[in-house]
Structure formats: structure tokens, C-alpha cells
Design a protein around this nucleic acid. Structure first.
Lengths: 188, 188
DNA sequence: AAACTAACAGACAGGTCTGTCTACAATCAA
DNA sequence: TTGATTGTAGACAGACCTGTCTGTTAGTTT
């Protein structure tokens, strides 16, 4: 009896390899070898590589969304504080060993528009922005939509920059700018 | 006598295909076929695919840097106006047919850290930020470094978002935020 | 005990990738 | 005319890709 089920081992390995090396750079043979699974087992759980990629993206979505919400809630009950606090998740991510930016942005860069991978990325970004917009509305922003757009721009910029230089300066800078923009949008 | 030299045809084709489909998705055979060139000719001008990719990135750097400077200068002589005006280049880019985001960010997503392609991307982003910092210093910002960091975050965020939804809302929103942040950083 | 399930091991097919190679044609300068 | 340059055309090698297939082993259920 395996300590960890085969499906889980495949997904764990895929998560690590896809994120650190990219989708096209990692073949199923490598995932099969590193997860210590038989090829037939792999294709039983994931009928094609694309299915595995989508499962990987779904897991990333779960994790990242959870981290954003946790960071926001840790900032206290005030939605305006939460809008600033969510950037703590960005700082934590940038500091993490092996950080390579946003898995969704990276995936979209390898997928053509209209493909499931690309659309999953669009859906993820829309969901995050929608959540930020709700916070902005709760904070009493004059233009919740605009504020959400701006803050997600900063967030995506920080995610993209973090992939290039591991310095967390971008994250703290994004957070400071968020503080300025939030207070300007709420009081104004 | 060919109207356009072979080297130019190869580079033009590579530019179009690499940008629209990604580096790994486009093989040299496709570039050779679409540029109407013999394989030996291709490898005479570009000893390896990576050399061609770097030449592609250099061209992107030339074009994008030129567009940023032109947009900045079109905003007038005041550096503070130029810091806001450079976002016009982002709006123009997002509106362009077949826009797929920042070629450098996309390239970095497909390249491992430490590779020439990745380092070329880092160098490009540093060069842009250095130029923005000079503008910020000229505008009399209290913290030119921080302002440059913030504005390039917005810029990269806009470039990344634009790859997902073709709407130019992100660009105008980024510009409005830039206006707020610049005036806050200059007067403050 | 027999049947079923899940997993293992790995050969195989058909395709694509990069890069090298040979052979041939056109142009231009000495 | 001869030779150098630049190009075309395409076969080829060796590696890697995804996905299918056969066959074996171990544990569970009936």
C-alpha cells in the first residue's frame, strides 16, 4: 500500500516541475519518472497532458486564492485594511525559495488564446479582481471597479517582476502604493 | 536578387511567430518554411535557435523602448508629464491587433533563470526602470527609486493583464493611477 | 479459491525537435 | 573563365514528445 496514492504523487510532481520549468519544458515521461509511477497509471488518472495541466492550474488557484484571503483577513476587519493587507501574500510569495512568478501568467504565455489553459488563466484573474472589487465596495470606494483594477494591476506587476528579480522590494513597494491609492480612493 | 535579404526575412518571420505563439511552440522548421529560406541559410545567419531568440528579444527591446520614449516625449517637456505620458505606449500596444502582452515576460516564463534569454529579460526591465527613475528624479520626486519601482509595477501589470483580456481599460486605469502617484510623489 | 482492481515495468509507434550534411543554382568580381 | 559568395532544396541523424499497448505483481473482495 503506497503511503501516498499515485494520483497525488503525480499531481505533486507536476506542480513542482511545471511551476519551476514551465509547461512545455516538462514532458510526461519526466513526471512519470519523478513521481515513480507507471505510464499506464499516469494515463489512467490523467487521460492527456492537458488534463494534468488544468488540474495543476486548479490547485494553484486554490492555494493562491487561499493565501490572498488569509492575508486580507489577517489585516483586520476593515475592508480598506484588507485591501492593503492582501499584498502581504505577494511579499510572502516573492520571498519563497524557487519563486518564479505567477503560475497563471506563465502558463498563459505558453498557451494560445482560446485554449483551455489560457481561458483558465483569464477566469482566475477575473475571479481575483471580482473579489478585490467586493472588498473595495465594502471599503466605500467611490469607484470600486477602478480601484480593483488598479490594485490587481499592481498585484500582477509584482507577480511578474518577482519572477525576474527575487527581491521582495517590489512587493513592499506595491503594498505602499496600494496604501496610497486605497486611502485616496476611499476618502476622495 | 531578393527584395528583402534572407536574414531580414528570417527575423521578421521569427518576430511574428515567436510573439504570437511563444518560443517553444515555434520550431526552426516552421520559421524556415514561412520565411521561404533554405535550412542552411538559416543556420548560416543564426547558428542556433537561441541566437535567433536573442536577436528577436533585442529587436523587441529596440521597438518597445522607442515607443516608451516617444510616448513620454509627446507628453511635453515636463518630466512629471512624461512619467504619465509614457503609459500612452501601453494603451497603444494593448489596442494593437494580436497583442499578446510583454514579449520579455512571456519569454522569461519559458526560460529558466540563469539562461541568456532570462537574463536578457532582466536586463531589459532594469533598463526601463532606470530610465523611469531618471525621469522621476528630473520631476523632483522625493523618492525617485520608489516612484520608478511603482510605475514600472503598474506598467508590467498592464502588460501582463493585456495579454489576458484585450481591453485597453487596464492601460487607461494604469495611467490614471500613475497620475495620482506621480503628483503625490512630486508634491509630497 | 476466484475475480477484480490498482499499480508496476517498459516496449513501441508515429510524430516533432534541433542541427548537420550533400548537392545544385545564381550572381558578381578578378 | 574562374572563383567566391549567397542562396535553394531536401535528406539525414539522434534525441525527445505524446499516447497506446502487452504483460506482471500485489492486495481486496466475493
Amino acid at each position: 500500500m503506497p503511503q501516498v496514492p499515485a494520483r497525488q504523487r503525480i499531481l505533486d510532481t507536476a506542480f513542482r516541475l511545471f511551476y519551476s520549468r514551465g509547461l512545455r519544458a516538462v514532458g510526461v515521461d519526466l513526471i512519470i519518472a519523478e513521481s515513480g509511477v507507471a505510464k499506464a497509471t499516469f494515463y489512467k488518472h490523467f487521460p492527456s497532458k492537458e488534463v494534468l495541466v488544468l488540474a495543476y492550474l486548479d490547485r494553484v488557484d486554490d492555494i493562491w486564492t487561499g493565501q490572498l484571503r488569509a492575508a486580507a483577513e489577517a489585516a483586520g476587519p476593515d475592508p480598506a485594511d484588507q485591501l492593503v493587507g492582501l499584498f502581504d501574500a505577494l511579499g510572502t510569495a516573492c520571498r519563497r525559495e524557487g519563486y518564479r512568478g505567477c503560475a497563471f501568467i506563465n502558463a498563459a504565455a505558453e498557451a494560445e488564446p482560446g485554449t483551455p489553459v489560457h481561458e483558465r488563466t483569464v477566469a482566475h484573474k477575473l475571479a481575483v479582481r471580482s473579489w478585490v472589487r467586493d472588498l473595495a465596495a465594502g471599503a466605500g470606494a467611490a469607484d470600486p471597479d477602478g480601484l480593483a483594477r488598479t490594485l490587481t494591476l499592481l498585484l500582477d506587476g509584482g507577480l511578474a517582476s518577482g519572477a525576474l528579480e527575487a527581491s521582495p522590494d517590489a512587493a513592499t513597494c506595491a503594498q505602499e502604493s496600494a496604501r496610497v491609492l486605497v486611502s485616496a480612493a476611499v476618502t476622495g
